[in-house]
Design a protein around this nucleic acid. Structure first.
Length: 870
RNA sequence: GGGGGAUUAGCUCAGUUGGCUAGAGCGCUUGCCUGGCAGGCAAGAGGCCACCGGUUCGAAUCCGGUAUUCUCCA
């Protein structure tokens, strides 16, 4: 059975059990501050479990792309070393939202595994929750009894809270779970040691394949549990492991999920894969795993970057490059060459991979090149350090600096050290890393208290499309402290405040009751909740409030948002259909739009784009807004399919001329394009490989911008008194250059005059000449020039006294031949001389300067020189 | 969000406790030589040492700020 067939059978099976089959949610998570990536199949249904959203279908099944890089069972550095951990993986799952419970879940699991897939039932084990005293929970004997229908008692095991009690986080829905494990060892091995002893023991061939979670409790912030009114089933089956079991393999990497990638890596590197623990095999596994994670993430719109989710992707990619570089001999980028193989294999089940192929390739290629540069620099730095190294140990602080500041991987440092018979102070390195981690944690620590619920209200409605002012109640609030600052998060029954989303910033404004205003400084979304940020809590939170949005800012933002849609549509007209939104920021001041495009947008194109947008503005196209449109109908309307919609979402469609711009969008918009007034593009730049950024202003801001430039231009015209200021400035520039040259000549002449004057006053001291004079030159550069001029003379010592910006100074020049023959050092002499003017100084043997406070001392200093020299 | 680093000629970079009116290689220009594959020799142009401020007799170098960028952590 191929992996594609296995996936399909799962979906078909649950469809036959009246489940709605839904598409995978994006792997990259938005609107959830606690999560960067989808790490389990249930993520997209979180709001249903939390009670924030009602389920549309009570039975659902899907395959979900997930990413895990940390957590209790997953450490990035372990992936590839063993044969069953992955960063990106597929999770097959079926759900019941308040519908069926343990009985059906267990029966169907058995039916699918044994009757449909034909797994050997003698190899299966089930675990059930053993109970927990601290939580006051009994063992899950209900599940245990159900399993007894299928399995002998000695293959049903009780397991601890750690393995068999599932929780979403510190708070929220949770419950006991029951897992199916499979023993894939040979008959001989199974005879020698019963599988039941290896369940939950991290054995690579006795593994969990399916986890059935029975959600029946809610964990409160104080740690206590309460029963949920509606009980849910949440299951997750690791697709790659299932394939391993069904294809009779002992490693996930030996299945056809990874096969094509592995043979391609093998081919590119000229290294054979032997499913062993050798470093080359580990490297091949690492790359095969990571390329999937990175490609899927980029296809979902997550570009490698320096923070947040982007940083995680970058780290995964760099780890793959590192392994290829160290163990497979890849000295140039190679990972991007694997993309066609991956797309061919998974592009059908995940069409986004196919449509984003070019971007994925380009982004990976660029990142590979950049990391290889980083490696080169690190190697230089390392060699430099080693050449000056006295002992045999590389300082931990240096290794950490290399890692922290220059991005050079520690294992490469160790590898290179070994090659030169050196060792690395790893403990010192770890200490540095630990300190850095603590610093970061301290800086981001936030603490939130329990929600104080004032009113039961499971749906907070956004009314801000139509109203900027309305009466609201606070339904719940909580205090949050971050970085020593405290503020409150408020949730209303209904709200006119737009929460930051789709690039549009959150609304600001205030709520008012009993004459007291509480300012809302930001509005954000947490899953489906709209959260209002306030510095303080109103005196009476249970009052009825008048909620008022800052209308001026909202309107300016709306103009920018509508303009963004026009820009998007025009970009596709001018540059081509490959242009897709990759990021967007819309605030009252300006708009920023990132999009896929593979070359610089030329000045001519920018002018064209701007002109077309402004033409659309003048057409004054009326806004056509449709709310609560099912996703399918929206697509039929020609709305650009954007990833990021969740199953069950009703979308909003914003149209400016159905033949021009139709977009799915939750943002606020101008009533007609004419309101935008004017759009002015401010800049075009690059953000990443294959992604360009355009920034623009609209409305009043645009007018201001244009006016400012116009005024400057007029001012220039008046100043220059010419028609064409550009030409005028050019003329001025050449003139200035000419004049500068002239001044230089004059200065040289004056200096040589002064020099001749000084030379005439030189006193003959036998084998050398000496000048001791007070001169009236103020400019430091000119004095220095004169001194260097004098230095060209042979057999000359000159001490010049000056008053520069009111302070006395001395300059001593000794010609090179005297420095050589007499051994005089101007730098030392000047320190003696400077005492006369109560100052200090220094310099080189041939030229030195000093400054001081007592101008009256200059004659004494001049007099002192002959004595010093004799 | 919090650290650390970098910014010097068109490009890649040196510049050592502050003291060459800033250097190298490549590239560029010009001239001469030359029977090829980055041809050789010579001369030359090219720098507000990122920007703003401070300390100092003196700052590319030290201190503060800004911008850009790299990087680690969250």
């Amino acid at each position: 059975m191929t992996s594609n067939e296995i996936r399909q059978k799962f979906l078909d099976f649950f469809e036959s059990k009246q489940h709605r089959i839904v598409p995978s949610a994006p792997m990259v998570v938005k609107d959830d501050p606690t999560l960067m990536f989808t790490n389990a199949g249930m993520n997209q249904f979180k709001d249903i479990f939390l009670g924030n959203r009602a389920a549309k279908d009570v039975r659902v099944a899907d395959t979900q792309k997930c990413l895990r890089v940390s957590g209790k069972h997953n450490d990035l550095e372990e992936v590839g070393v063993d044969t069953y951990h992955h960063t990106m993986f597929e999770m097959l799952g079926n759900w019941s939202f308040g519908d069926y419970f343990k009985k059906e879940a267990i029966e169907w699991a058995w039916e699918l595994l044994v009757d449909v897939y034909g797994l050997d039932k003698d190899r299966l084990y089930a675990t059930v929750f053993e109970g927990d005293e601290a939580d006051g929970l009994e063992a899950d004997s209900e599940a245990e009894e159900l399993w007894k229908k299928f399995l002998p008692e000695n293959r049903i095991l009780r397991a601890s809270k750690k393995d068999n009690f599932w929780e979403m986080g510190d708070q929220g829905p949770c419950g006991p779970c029951s897992e199916v494990h499979i023993d894939l060892r040979s008959d001989a091995e199974r005879k020698a040691k019963p599988g039941r002893e290896l369940v939950n023991a991290d054995h690579p061939q006795v593994v969990e394949i399916w986890n059935l979670v029975f959600i029946q409790f809610n964990r409160k912030a104080d740690g206590s549990l309460e029963n949920l009114p509606a009980k849910h089933v949440d299951t997750g089956m690791g697709f790659e492991r299932l394939c391993m079991a069904l294809q009779g393999k002992t490693s996930n990497y030996d299945t056809d999920v990874f096969g094509p990638l592995i043979s391609e890596i093998s081919k590119l590197s000229g290294t054979k894969y032997t499913s062993s623990d050798s470093q080359t095999d580990i490297a091949i596994r690492v790359i095969a795993d990571h390329v999937r994670a990175v490609a899927f993430a980029i296809a979902d719109g997550q570009i490698p970057s320096n923070n947040g989710a982007g940083y995680v992707i970058k780290r995964i990619l760099r780890r793959a490059i590192r392994y290829g570089y160290s163990f497979l001999g890849f000295k140039a980028g190679f990972i991007h060459k694997l993309i066609p193989t991956l797309t061919a294999q998974m592009g059908v089940a995940f069409p986004e991979l196919k449509s984003q192929e070019q971007l994925v390739t380009k982004v990976i290629q660029e990142e590979e090149a950049s990391f290889l540069r980083t490696l080169d620099k690190g190697i230089d730095r390392f060699n430099n350090y080693v050449s000056g190294l006295k002992g045999k140990t590389i300082d931990g602080a240096f290794a950490f600096e290399l890692y922290d500041t220059f991005g050079f991987p520690i294992d490469l440092t160790e590898l290179m050290a070994r090659e030169q018979n050196l060792n690395v102070d790893i403990q010192g390195f770890e200490e540095g890393l630990q300190q850095q981690k603590e610093r970061s944690r301290a800086a981001t620590a936030t603490e939130s208290s329990d929600w104080t619920v004032l009113r039961k209200d499971d749906r907070e409605e956004f009314v801000g499309y139509d109203l900027l002012e309305t009466e609201v109640f606070i339904t719940r609030y909580r205090k949050v402290s971050a970085k020593g600052k405290e503020f409150y998060q408020l949730v209303f029954n209904i709200t006119p405040f737009y929460a930051e989303s789709g690039g549009q910033v959150g609304d600001t404004g205030y709520i008012e009751a009993d004459g007291q205003k509480t300012f809302i400084f930001d509005t954000k979304k947490e899953n489906d909740l709209i959260i209002h940020f306030a510095k303080e809590l109103p005196a009476n939170p249970e009052a009825t409030f008048k909620a008022v949005v800052n209308a001026e800012k909202r309107q300016a933002t709306a103009l920018n948002h509508s303009a963004t849609h026009l820009l998007h549509a025009v970009l596709r007209e001018v540059l081509g259909e490959h242009v897709e939104q990759k990021g967007s920021l819309v605030n009252p001041d300006h708009l920023r739009f990132d999009f896929s495009h593979f070359s610089k947008v030329s000045d001519e194109e920018l002018i064209d784009i701007e002109a077309r947008i402004n033409a659309k503005i003048r057409e004054n196209i009326q806004l056509d807004e449709k709310r609560n449109v099912p996703l399918n109908s929206a697509k039929e309307m020609g709305a650009m399919a954007l990833f990021g919609e969740k199953y069950g979402d009703l979308v909003r469609v914003i149209t400016f001329d159905k033949d021009f711009s139709v977009e799915l969008c939750g943002g606020t918009h101008a009533k007609a394009t004419g309101n935008i007034g004017l759009l002015k593009i401010i800049s075009e730049s690059s953000v990443a490989a294959g992604i360009r950024r355009i920034e623009a202003v609209t409305g009043e801001k645009a007018l201001e911008t244009v006016n400012e430039a116009y005024e400057q231009f007029n001012g220039l015209k008046q100043l220059l008194k010419v028609k064409d200021p550009l030409q005028g400035v050019e003329q001025l520039q050449t003139k200035i250059k000419e004049l500068e040259r002239k001044i230089e000549g004059l200065n040289a002449k004056a200096a040589s005059g002064l020099k001749d004057e000084l030379l005439a006053k030189a006193v003959d001291k036998g084998d050398y000449k000496m000048i001791t004079e007070k001169i009236s030159l103020d400019d430091a550069a000119a004095i220095k020039n004169l001194c260097f001029d004098l230095k060209k003379e042979s057999g000359l010592v000159a001490l010049l006294g000056v008053i520069s910006s009111g302070k006395p100074g001395l300059h001593l020049v000794i010609s090179d031949d005297l420095v050589n023959s007499k051994g005089w050092k101007a730098g030392e002499l000047i320190r003696e001389l400077a005492k006369h003017i109560q100052g200090g100084g220094g310099g080189q043997p041939t030229y030195a300067s000093a400054g001081g406070n007592d101008a009256n001392g200059i004659p004494a200093a001049l007099k002192a020189l002959p004595e010093l020299l004799s």
